[in-house]
Simulated assay, not measured.
Amino acid sequence: MRITSILRAAQGALRSEKGRRTGRSVTDKVAGQARKVAGDKHASKIDSAQQAAHDYIDKQGGRGTGEPGSGPPPRG
């Protein structure tokens, strides 16, 4: 399987509410594990990366619904 196929599948999954909830849960768990390993030394960088991941996931919602995180309106 090509990496582009994997990326498209992941982006498609983030368009559903369940997919976004799962994505946020995974990023929370990864950030928690990173904090355990790195300790307080890198906490701010971990927090920044976690927030950036959450922001990206939130932006992957439906298109043009007018709700926050709904993405750009459709062309046409």
Rank of each mutant, 00 (worst) to 15 (best):
K18G: 08
K59Y: 07
R63S: 12
D28F: 11
G64S: 13
R75H: 06
G71E: 09
I46N: 00
G71C: 15
E67W: 04
V30F: 12
R75Y: 15
S5Y: 03
Q50E: 10
G32N: 06
G23F: 06
R15Q: 13
A34K: 00
G23M: 04
P72C: 07
D47Q: 14
Q51V: 14
G62P: 03
G61R: 01
S5C: 06
G76L: 02
S44Y: 01
K41T: 10
Q33F: 06
G32C: 09
I6Q: 11
S25W: 04
K29D: 11
I6M: 01
I46L: 01
I3W: 09
E17M: 11
R35D: 08
S48A: 14
A34L: 03
K59S: 08
G39Y: 05
H54Y: 08
P73A: 14
T4A: 07
I3R: 11
A31F: 02
A10R: 06
L7V: 15
K18D: 08
D47M: 10
G23T: 10
M1Y: 11
L7E: 03
D55A: 15
Y56Q: 06
D28E: 10
S44K: 13
S44G: 10
S16F: 02
G32E: 07
V30Y: 08
S70N: 11
L14P: 00
R75G: 15
G39E: 03
A9F: 15
R20N: 10
Q50G: 00
T22C: 04
Y56H: 11
R8E: 10
S48N: 06
I6C: 08
Q50C: 06
G66A: 07
G69C: 13
S25V: 15
M1Q: 15
R24L: 07
H42M: 02
A9T: 13
S5N: 13
G39W: 15
R24V: 03
R24A: 11
G61F: 01
Q11T: 08
A38G: 10
T22F: 14
A43P: 00
H54G: 02
G61W: 01
P74H: 12
A43Y: 08
Q51Y: 09
A9G: 09
I46Y: 01
Q33R: 14
S70D: 13
R21G: 14
K59E: 06
R75D: 09
D47W: 02
G66D: 15
A34E: 01
R21V: 07
L7G: 02
E17D: 05
T27P: 00
E17N: 07
G12A: 05
V26D: 07
I3D: 06
R63W: 05
V26T: 02
V26Y: 01
R20M: 13
P72N: 04
D40A: 07
